[in-house]
Design a protein around this nucleic acid. Structure first.
Lengths: 248, 248
DNA sequence: CGACCCATTGAATATAGTCAACCCGGGTGG
DNA sequence: CCACCCGGGTTGACTATATTCAATGGGTCG
């Protein structure tokens, strides 16, 4: 039941939207949750599945992806601690994409029934969860814009800004650096670029002294220049003012 | 209050998810709704706005889009009658994209308060509306896959399949044809292709005798071949079995 | 040590973008 | 009534961004 962080991530997420009553907080903290460790690169749920649980990322990164006819992979979104990547399975019974661990992961699995129950008792919790899926959609929209209209370099800069801000919003980034255990191949698959081209874009950003990125750690050397180059406007993240203040 | 179709579109959408009680049906049918006609190409709400109403498309097409730094436009999704394109404004107060009429449009505007109220009284209506935003997100995910991984021809074929099926699902397509008043420039902006290239893709589909498309009407000449070419699997539309049966 | 994954780089190629021109139909105004 | 204009569609020619192919090096882990 992990009160050492597990429930708190949920409480925090919901509390960032609506002030919680003691009752609501109690209900969230006591949601029955099965905590599991998942090795890197392992699928958690697959396209076509009918999940019975929601998956709350406790530590590590997860990602969702789809494969196309000729075997190529598109990564849809990367998920950081505090995210509930498959929340949509509450109302869309069959999964239309895969969810996998990007790094070694600990995740809490909460039965749909339990979520429905809390949600029925506390409308504001429903609202907060719904909102969470809407922010996910907003991120998807911005990704469409990036892939559809921005060139490789802009796209890459934008992505790094986005991930950095999302990590900062959950307290996982320092002023200018954060753990970022994601390979170039994976970023490439997320941005619709080839791995080779991705590598060149990363090199370019490095040579321009905007970031360092080594597969384990992302360091922002010049946030303003990076955001300008990446055409990055954080509105789409719908961060609350408190989180937004944490901008580097 | 338009019982001549207006409320019914809502009733139908919700009823396709959960069997409605007489009470629920009554509440939906009597949602106060301001019906307005909007000329083609006019913005309805803009990025940065804080909408107070939700917009239900009654007839005509709408679309959502974003502009990037250098003026290019990315169309995020096209909306058909029955859609509520800005439902997310219920929980995300500031809009992160624009909504506009693609064709002359009639739309019903329902105050957020009214939606919240019905939603508070009838959890299944909440669920159905939430679900609606989730299907929108599923469409966005598939769009990411298309733009990120599929070449121009595949992408175009996929898009035509998608739109056709969505129109068929709301009864707006015959066996093999449907009204489709969308220009090539708009399809191009939706798929992240240049207008010139879009034109060539349309020509190619026409020359292969898969579709005819003239800016007013889409006719499917060979659904199976088109779906195969477009790598189209309708799972992501999350249509209910009844609608799915209407496959051409 | 060898296998493997990831990063890196050069060279050739391809898909898609840009530029520019032309056509057509419909609406407008002289 | 006809000339003009405008939006949308169409096409050719050229260019560019990004992909593919191929090869190499550096870690890490059995």
């Amino acid at each position: 039941m992990g009160d050492d962080g597990a429930g708190n991530l949920l409480v925090r997420k919901v509390a960032s939207v609506a002030k919680l009553s003691a009752e609501e907080r109690h209900a969230l903290e006591n949601l029955p949750m099965a905590v599991r460790a998942i090795p890197a690169r392992q699928d958690i749920v697959r396209i076509g599945d009918r999940p019975t649980h929601c998956c709350l990322v406790l530590s590590g990164f997860a990602f969702r992806y789809k494969l196309v006819g000729d075997g190529r992979r598109q990564i849809l979104n990367v998920h950081v601690p505090g995210d509930i990547p498959d929340l949509q399975s509450l109302h869309l019974p069959v999964l239309d994409h895969n969810l996998a661990a990007l790094t070694p992961l600990t995740a809490g699995f909460i039965h749909h029934d339990a979520v429905h129950e809390v949600s029925a008792r506390f409308p504001r919790i429903t609202g907060a969860l719904w909102r969470d899926t809407l922010v996910d959609a907003a991120i998807l929209r911005e990704r469409i814009v990036s892939i559809g209209q921005r060139d490789g370099l802009t796209r890459t800069a934008h992505f790094l800004c986005e991930i950095f801000m999302r990590l900062a919003a959950v307290g996982l980034a320092s002023d200018r650096a954060t753990a970022m255990p994601i390979t170039q191949v994976e970023i490439a698959d997320a941005l619709g670029l080839s791995p080779v081209h991705m590598n060149r874009m990363v090199r370019e950003l490095r040579e321009r002294r905007l970031v360092t990125l080594d597969g384990q750690r992302l360091e922002i050397l010049d946030w303003d220049a990076l955001a300008r180059l990446g055409d990055f406007d954080p509105t789409f993240l719908h961060l609350d003012p408190g989180d937004r203040a944490r901008r580097p």
